[in-house]
């Protein structure tokens, strides 16, 4: 099946002269018409976020990338179907990714260990880099010990910046339940990290 070429993607100028990116929803309308350029825009916009979310839900990097690939495959395959719903695109995307993460974690049924990516600033001195890595390892390990739903709630709200209502929608629970998961997660993290207070860089 050849992708139909729709109108080229343009960045609109709004009233004050600033440029406005096309919305997710308008891009998805084009994806539904098999527009590969629109699909690629969606990938560029969300790939890093989805990989980060999957990795922070404590999948290793390889699995996080598999989840991302499967998520975007569904964007392409189910684009036309998504366009018939009222769901906000970002919420739907995270829901797909979350469900894939949960499936994998349930299949694995073991305590995951967070892999800490090498994201150190090259300008930091050697000692600072080691220190930051140690801290990241401690934090990663503490997050890895959290129950699956607490990790997901923390990843969605703290790291991915979703609102509590949107995060609740992604996890298909109430806002109160999200808040409770977050409180418990932060309490556990504080307890886990308390023993290493001297090792954590302020």
């Amino acid at each position: 099946m050849r992708a139909a070429r729709v109108r080229p993607l343009t960045v609109k100028a709004v009233g004050d002269g600033t440029l406005q990116e096309p919305s997710d929803e308008s891009l998805m309308a084009r994806v539904a018409q098999r527009d590969e350029d629109a699909y690629r825009c969606i990938v560029d916009r969300y790939l890093t976020q989805i990989v980060a979310f999957a990795a922070r839900t404590s999948l290793d990097r390889g699995e996080a990338e598999d989840v991302a690939q499967e998520t975007f495959l569904r964007v392409w395959k189910h684009g036309p179907r998504w366009c018939q719903t009222d769901a906000r695109f970002r919420t739907w995307l995270y829901t797909v990714a979350y469900n894939l993460c949960v499936d994998r974690l349930r299949r694995r049924r073991e305590i995951p260990h967070n892999t800490v990516p090498d994201g150190a600033d090259p300008n930091q001195d050697q000692f600072a880099v080691l220190h930051a890595k140690d801290t990241a390892k401690l934090v990663g390990a503490a997050i890895g010990k959290l129950p699956e739903r607490q990790r997901a709630a923390l990843a969605l709200t703290y790291y991915q910046g979703l609102g509590n209502r949107e995060a609740a929608e992604v996890m298909q629970i109430s806002v109160e339940a999200i808040e409770s998961l977050l409180s418990r997660a932060r309490r556990s993290l504080r307890k886990s990290l308390q023993g290493h207070a001297g090792d954590i860089e302020p």
């Binding site: 790939l47 890093t48 990989v51 980060a52 990795a55 922070r56 990097r61 996080a64 990338e65 991302a68 892999t115 800490v116 990516p117 090498d118 994201g119 150190a120 930051a132 801290t135 990241a136 401690l138 934090v139 990663g140 997050i143 703290y158 790291y159 932060r186 993290l189 504080r190 990290l193 954590i200 860089e201 302020p202």
Partner: peptide, 13 residues
């Protein structure tokens, strides 16, 4: 706790 959580770098693809 926020400062500690912020130390965890964002995983890159």
């Amino acid at each position: 706790l926020d400062a500690a959580l912020d130390q965890l770098p964002a995983p890159e693809p």
